[in-house]
């Protein structure tokens, strides 16, 4: 590595990035500030960024509003299972789309995109009906009759999200960028397609799996509408459902909501920071060399 003088465009770039970052962060800063105020101060017409007195008690109060350890546990389980399985399914399908030609490939691929184009509001009801008639679960018989199926179950929060068109598409695009030399080298070795995937592609997929993992984690953790519809009992609540506890008939306890929001966001931030180094690990070259 040779030392070099930092060129001017990069200095300009730094300032622009810093400015954008601060602007992006400002609303969150206000969230933190609100979480430390009293309700009277939140509603007061004069605004202060730094609260009059720091109400750390808000955080304790927010967590006392429900069975939060259980909500976190539920969200953690649901998110980790969804993310792990969907990473495997999506990368496998993306790999297949990107690297092989087979009859029906085009149709199957475009069909994937169609699923993204219809808003949730319309597909909600048929999906819910399928959940309630899910065979062999929740007291249902093999034809899906007699019980409540996957309604009010954590499994019902996982299954529909295991295969996201988004993930399949992203993995496909990523693998399209891989040099084809890898495949050729592997086929000389006589590696089967499965081994090609598991031994060469997966080890080189750090950036895409990290990016997809972070986005999928965020999405699952923050999912609100589906759990709201599917879950009825407090013991199955996710963190996002827990956040509804601060809405009352006559307004919202904003300070507590903001405090809880920050605690709910923290795990996501940790995951993001942990995954960061994988986004930026040079990949393909090492794949070629290896």
């Amino acid at each position: 590595m040779s030392t070099r003088k930092i060129p001017l465009p990069e200095i300009i770039a730094f300032f622009i990035v810093a400015l954008v970052a601060i602007l992006m962060f400002l609303p969150f800063l206000l969230t933190i500030s609100t979480s430390l105020k009293t309700m009277a101060e939140v509603e007061s017409p004069e605004f202060r960024l730094i609260p009059e007195s720091f109400q750390w008690q808000n955080y304790a109060d927010a967590m006392a509003s429900g069975n939060w350890s259980r909500y976190f546990m539920n969200s953690l389980l649901i998110t980790s299972i969804t993310v792990c399985l969907s990473l495997i399914f999506n990368s496998l399908a993306g790999f297949s789309f990107a690297r092989f030609t087979f009859p029906g490939r085009g149709v199957l691929f475009y069909l994937i995109l169609i699923g993204l184009m219809v808003p949730e509001q319309v597909t909600l009801i048929p999906l819910f009906k399928m959940m309630s008639n899910f065979p062999l679960f929740g007291g249902n018989n093999i034809l899906g009759q007699g019980g409540t199926g996957l309604i009010n179950s954590r499994l019902g929060l996982i299954i529909p999200y295991l295969a996201a068109p988004f993930g399949i598409f992203l993995c496909r695009q990523f693998y399209l960028g891989f040099p084809k030399a890898i495949d050729d080298a592997a086929s000389i070795d006589g590696a089967s397609k499965w081994r090609l995937y598991a031994q060469i592609y997966i080890p080189s997929s750090g950036p895409v799996l990290a990016a997809l993992g972070v986005l999928k984690t965020t999405h699952t953790w923050n999912n609100y509408l589906w759990p709201l519809i599917l879950i009825n009992s407090d013991e199955m609540y996710t963190v996002q459902l827990g956040l509804t506890k601060f809405r009352t008939a006559y307004g919202v306890e904003w300070n507590l909501l903001m405090a809880a929001t920050i605690l709910v966001v923290l795990p996501l931030l940790v995951i993001f920071l942990l995954a960061q180094k994988h986004f930026v690990s040079g990949v393909v070259t090492s794949g070629v060399k290896g």
Binding site: F95, G115, L162, A163
Partner: peptide, 9 residues
Amino acid sequence: MLAPGYLIY
């Protein structure tokens, strides 16, 4: 390879 993801989808 497509099957698990695609069927669920």
